[in-house]
Design a protein around this nucleic acid. Structure first.
Length: 432
RNA sequence: GUGGCCGUAGCUCAGCUGGUAGAGCCCUGGAUUGUGAUUCCAGUUGUCGUGGGUUCGAGCCCCAUCGGUCACCCCA
């Protein structure tokens, strides 16, 4: 392919056209970045508290990995994947639409469960070619949390409780926990057939959407918002009723632990997840404050995926957090994070300008965060910049101070006396 | 993939039945020598998303296109 063929024809037609980010791909600007970091830092801390270990996995995997794990007939695989053929060797590759598949691949590849169960987490961008709307971008960010080798309900509950703690630490309230058990593969297949049989007796009531789902995902019909189908959905056979004893006990176990932990939940029998690999416990944390995209975290058990991807049979449980949505929710709650340097170093005068650079380094050596005013300007304008920078103190360096190796410290965030001191004393004055 | 609404200054927006482009915020300078965020004064802000069309004349009307936004679907 030639260079001219490679260039975007729409852009190259008009000269000097400004580039724009691709639809659904966006910049997180410095204004928003501190709040993102607060979110990420808080999550890291909480995950650490629970003994989850970080793993960093690629953004690109082989297409087949996602087809096998997410499911051939899911929306993600059928129409949302950024997939292409590597022009150098013909491999079919895909930008990851979710993280679990790659994580399982890594666990199997490096045999991470060799010494027993592991708890893992990762963070980063995911890619789905969907239409954008509030809380949904084509490149979006998730924290993925996965536990491998744990069979018992305590891990399911642990992950849910971990999330409850995260919301608490972030200052997010009023998020609802919905849980359900969708059974093992066999139980679900049975139930699926039961459901198809049931709805096929009532096709006169089903709308177009439901008729389509009857073939693709009959469990989703129960979720219909069509009021005309409300009655028939209510009367439909319940998934819970077709679950085996072991599955029910597992679900009971999760519920009891949640109760004991004081985490409120709502059993939602219609809660099914869009990815094929889930079984038994599924859950979502939902908010009503973000419009249509209310799920801020969701996950569940996927006991057969590891084996399906070539590993030894290993039970597993995990979830994803939609960081954009949590971020929006934090904004909704007025949660803020500001960058506040300790010092903004104002420097006016020939000698002062000469010494300021070195003086800033000295203060940084002492452990302070120091923004050096660069580029000259009047005293007044420098003070204005100091104010804008959100710094706690303006360190004023004029020729008087410079000659003596001193600075004048003026508090900017609260009222207080301006004091003149040696550069070496700045740290102890500010940090006391 | 489908539909509603919207694109005017860095930001938030006004702009009448078509008649040369506006406000606030921000930014810059000043209100007697080196003190910010408040106040007062002055000043800079633009291919009106893009490309066509109608018209003597288009920010405004028409078509196309791109983008934003919200929703369906689906999901984090």
């Amino acid at each position: 392919m030639s260079a001219s063929q490679l260039s975007n024809s729409k852009v190259s037609q008009t000269k000097n056209t400004k580039f724009q980010s691709i639809k659904g791909f966006y910049d997180i600007l410095p204004e928003d970045s501190p709040l993102w970091q607060k979110l990420e830092d808080t999550a890291r801390r909480v995950l650490n508290q629970y003994g989850y270990r970080n793993i960093r996995i690629p953004i690109v995997e082989s297409t087949e990995l996602f087809v096998r794990s997410v499911g051939e007939h899911t929306d993600i695989v059928e129409k949302e994947m950024y997939a292409w053929t590597d022009s150098l060797n013909g491999d079919s590759l895909t930008l990851r639409p979710e993280g679990t598949a790659g994580c399982v691949r890594a666990v199997v590849e490096s045999n991470l469960t060799y010494n027993g169960p592991v708890r893992l987490w990762y963070m980063g961008p995911m890619f789905r070619h969907e239409n954008v709307q509030k809380g949904r971008q084509r490149q979006f960010h998730q924290i993925g949390v996965e536990a491998f080798g744990y069979r018992t309900p305590d891990v399911d509950a642990e992950q849910i409780v971990l999330l409850a703690r995260l919301w608490r630490e972030l200052g997010i309230e009023d998020v609802e926990l919905q849980i359900n058990s969708i059974g093992d593969a066999v139980e679900r297949t049975q139930y699926r057939q039961t459901l198809i049989d049931y709805f096929e007796q009532h096709t006169d009531v089903l709308d177009e959407d439901a008729m389509r789902r009857l073939q693709t995902n009959p469990l989703r019909i129960l979720d219909s918002k069509n009021p005309k189908m409300q009655a028939i959905c209510e009367a439909a056979p319940k998934l819970m009723d077709s679950l085996g004893n072991e599955t029910r006990m597992h679900f009971e176990g999760v519920c009891v632990l949640l109760k004991d932990a004081g985490v409120a939940y709502k059993v939602n029998p219609r809660l099914v997840r869009g990815l094929d690999y889930y079984n038994r416990t599924v859950f979502e944390w939902v908010t009503t404050k973000l419009g249509a995209q209310g799920t801020i975290a969701g996950g569940g058990r996927y006991d057969s995926l590891v084996e399906r991807l070539g590993g030894d049979a290993t039970p597993a449980c995990g979830f994803g957090i939609g960081l954009e949505r949590v971020f929006l929710l934090m904004q909704e709650y007025g949660i803020v994070a500001n960058e506040t340097p300790d010092v903004y170093l104002v420097n006016v005068g020939e000698l002062a300008e000469k010494k300021a650079f070195d003086m800033a380094e000295t203060m940084r050596n002492a452990g302070l965060s120091v923004v050096l005013h660069a580029g000259g300007g009047s005293f007044k304008s420098q003070m204005k910049k100091a104010d804008k920078s959100n710094a706690r103190y303006a360190a004023i360096l004029g020729d008087d101070e410079a000659a003596l190796g001193e600075v004048s410290l003026k508090p900017l965030l609260e009222v207080g006396e301006q004091v003149k001191c040696k550069v070496s004393d700045v740290f102890s004055i500010i940090k006391r």
